[in-house]
């Protein structure tokens, strides 16, 4: 019997959808071992988030209200305290989960098992599968400690479906630690976009260094992104050059995506980029160099100058979508 605690991620006063991938793992472990899973919603607006989290079949949902912006030092003590009742503590491997969860693990002297793509349950024991070496090796790993702190790679897991009933919601006390006085949340600057979330979109169009400027992203690539109703991504080179913000970076060290359709426009396909998109169902490259390594993972490769091909493709897509 393995009991699991899911640490929800809160956003804009509600539950961030990526939490539901960790719920899927929790359900799988609870069902596979005859245990139960609970969810804790911690942060500002925990009640509203807990009410949403209550739709997914947890035994109970805990709400811990912590004011002010997120800092791991303010959340870890409460999560670690709750962890006493669970063998597995899990969250999505977003930057939130990656920041908070190892801190929790150290606090309870548990193993950290990051960014898993799968889990196998055999007679109550859980073995986790995780991509390593930029997705070129899958390691099967177990915790040797009594407890494991596990983060889940969003692109590899389905979001849990609603269960049709509501879990009871309880308030839970907030623990604190003096270390939280040693830092201060200053600000979170986000660029709001009307487009779908990169990690959740069904279609992603990414641009690379070949776009040459932020204006070209706007004038050449974005019309295609919008015609497809897609999310926009980028290579590291495009981010480093300042064409687009860092939160659009797809790759080993950026966001890992696995949409139904991925366009790599003017991207060579370095190992670190492939690590973030090669799980996509259909991959289309637009590149003037036939030899570019992106071909190794592409299904279709348009050998062309993007500045000519992308506007033409945009018009054709618009015509198709119109009807």
């Amino acid at each position: 019997m393995t009991d699991v605690l899911v640490v929800a991620e809160l956003m804009d006063g509600g539950l961030r959808k990526n939490t539901l991938t960790a719920v899927t793992l929790a359900k799988q472990i609870a069902e596979g071992t005859g245990g139960a899973f609970d969810i804790v919603a911690i942060g500002e607006g925990s009640q509203a988030a807990a009410a949403e989290a209550a739709k997914y079949g947890a035994r109970k949902v805990l709400a811990a209200e912590v004011e002010g912006g997120y800092v791991a030092e303010r959340y870890a003590p409460t999560v670690a305290n709750l962890a006493a009742d669970y063998e597995v503590i899990t969250a999505c491997a977003s930057t939130y989960g990656k920041d908070l969860m190892p801190r929790v693990a150290a606090r309870i002297e548990a193993a950290t098992i990051s960014d898993i793509s799968g889990a196998n349950i055999d007679g109550g024991a859980v073995t986790y599968v995780r991509p390593m070496y930029a997705g070129n090796v899958f390691g099967h790993v177990k915790a040797t400690t009594d407890k494991a702190v596990v983060t889940v790679r969003q692109s590899e897991w389905d979001a849990a479906a609603e269960s049709g009933s509501a879990s009871p919601v309880e308030d839970t006390p907030v623990e604190s630690d003096d270390v939280a006085d040693k830092l201060e949340f200053v600000s979170l600057e986000s660029q709001k976009s009307e487009r779908p979330d990169l990690a959740e979109a069904e279609t992603v169009v990414s641009g690379g260094r070949a776009l040459k400027s932020g204006e070209n992203f706007e004038n050449v690539l974005e019309p295609l992104v919008d015609a497809l109703g897609a999310a926009m991504g980028a290579s590291r080179a495009a981010v480093d050059a300042g064409y687009v913000p860092g939160d659009l970076q797809v790759g080993q060290t950026g966001k890992v995506v696995a949409p139904k359709l991925y366009f790599a426009v003017g991207i060579s396909g370095a190992i670190q980029h492939l690590a973030g998109m090669k799980g996509s169902k259909t991959i289309v490259a637009i590149n003037k160099d036939k030899e570019a390594p992106i071909a190794q993972v592409s299904d279709y490769f348009l050998v062309a100058d993007l500045f000519e091909a992308v506007p033409e493709l945009t018009n054709k897509v618009k015509t198709i979508k119109a009807g």
Partner: peptide, 8 residues
């Protein structure tokens, strides 16, 4: 971070 730049 995922959603932008968080300053501490």
């Amino acid at each position: 971070v995922d959603t932008g730049v968080l300053t501490l």
